[in-house]
Amino acid sequence: MCITPLTSFNQQAHRDPTWWDRVCWSPLSLLSLEGVLGFSLAVWAGLSLELAPQAFNLLYGVLPFFLFGLLLQHYPRWLRSRAVAQLRFSVIGLLLLTAQLFWLLNAWELVGLLPYLITLSAAWYLLLDGLRQLYRLAPGNGYRHERWINHALGLGALLFLLGGVGGLSGELAVLRLSILLGLGLFLLPTLLLLWLRLRLS
């Protein structure tokens, strides 16, 4: 029997993946992970530059456009469930966009902060309620990533409300606290869990 020795190409093809290979398994994987770090730095910069309201809106108002879309797209497949109703995600998107309009009008001092907070709260509620329904109706069990993502999102919603109370009352310390806790307890865990779940799917 003739055994062909491994060439350098074959050796490279059969080597164990390095930590960098595991991170760079796809463009989406690498850029998403770097995006998490970049977004966190942008929010942190907002805090450092005394731009806490802008950092708050970035974290709880702008990020959801991408995060909610990703979740609503992939959750049904991960949970082997029905797709999210078009009406629901259309309303969520409209509410998020309307909240940003109210944010702009608030910056121009044409409206108060309350319409922004109410509209954004409604978008968060519709997302959490939709994901909860998908999770509850999922066949079988063992969806640990999705369960922890739900917990992190629920915590994010509570921290958003905490920051909203701080914004309405003029307590910047409370607003800053909601941002700092949101970075560590909502943003990073949620996106890390999403990254891991996407890698497994």
Rank of each mutant, 00 (worst) to 15 (best):
G112M: 04
L105D: 01
S121E: 05
A42V: 12
P139A: 04
S48K: 15
A99Y: 02
S81C: 12
P115I: 00
L126C: 06
R88E: 00
L33K: 10
Y116N: 12
E109W: 11
L131E: 01
Q73A: 15
L31S: 13
T98E: 10
A42M: 14
Y60L: 03
P64G: 02
A123V: 02
L117V: 00
S121Y: 04
W108V: 12
P64A: 03
L30R: 09
F56S: 08
L71S: 01
A52G: 07
G112W: 02
S32L: 09
W44I: 15
L41C: 11
G142H: 05
P76S: 04
L131G: 01
L105G: 03
S81M: 06
G142D: 06
S40K: 08
G61K: 04
E50R: 15
Q133C: 06
A85G: 09
Q100H: 10
V84K: 08
Q133E: 12
L67F: 01
G140Y: 00
G140V: 03
P139L: 06
S40H: 08
L79Q: 04
L49E: 11
W124K: 10
L131C: 04
F89T: 09
A99H: 05
L95C: 11
S81E: 12
A138Q: 04
A99T: 02
W78A: 10
W124C: 03
F102K: 07
S48C: 14
L96P: 03
Y60E: 01
R82F: 07
L95W: 09
G93M: 09
Y125W: 13
V62C: 09
S48P: 09
L79G: 05
T119Y: 10
V36N: 04
L117I: 05
F56Q: 10
T98S: 15
S48Q: 15
A123Y: 02
Q133F: 06
S90D: 13
A42D: 05
R132M: 01
F56E: 03
Y60S: 01
D129I: 02
H74P: 06
W44Q: 15
A55S: 09
S48Y: 13
A123M: 02
V43C: 02
S32D: 09
L37R: 00
L41E: 03
I118Q: 14
L104F: 14
L131V: 01
A123P: 01
L47E: 07
L70R: 08
